[in-house]
Amino acid sequence: MPKKPPSSVFVPEPLIDSEQAAAIIGIHPKTLQKMARAGQIKAVHVGKLWRFRASNIEEWINGRLAS
């Protein structure tokens, strides 16, 4: 029985670094990294580096605007 080709292909959202993410929020990159360590903002720790999804940054901003 032949395999069907996938109907949709997963395309991951690109990750941005601490400097780029911090610039979007308007804070220092070290402050953003501290927030990521504390679990206040979603991030991925890759080796010694923190990476962020722009959508998670936007989500965090929207959460702050709502409160």
Rank of each mutant, 00 (worst) to 15 (best):
K30M: 11
K34D: 14
K34G: 15
I41W: 02
A36Y: 05
T31F: 08
I61L: 09
A22H: 10
W50L: 02
T31D: 06
D17P: 01
M1C: 12
S18M: 05
L15H: 02
P14Y: 05
F10P: 04
Q33W: 01
S7R: 10
S18H: 06
A54S: 11
L15C: 11
K48F: 07
I24T: 14
G63Y: 03
R37A: 14
L32E: 03
P5H: 03
F52Y: 04
E19H: 07
Q40I: 10
S18W: 05
G26D: 03
L49S: 09
P6S: 15
W60E: 08
I24S: 02
S67L: 07
V46Y: 03
P14K: 03
V9M: 08
G26P: 00
K48T: 13
E19Y: 13
I16S: 00
S7D: 13
K4E: 09
L32I: 00
A66H: 10
A43G: 01
K48A: 05
P29C: 06
P29G: 00
P12I: 03
K4F: 04
G63C: 05
Q33K: 07
E13A: 06
I16W: 00
V11D: 13
I24H: 05
T31A: 07
K48G: 06
G47A: 00
K42Y: 02
S8C: 15
K48D: 04
I57V: 05
E58C: 13
P29D: 00
R64P: 05
A54E: 11
P2S: 09
H28R: 07
L49V: 14
A21D: 01
E59M: 10
I27P: 01
L49I: 15
L15Q: 06
V44P: 09
K30L: 11
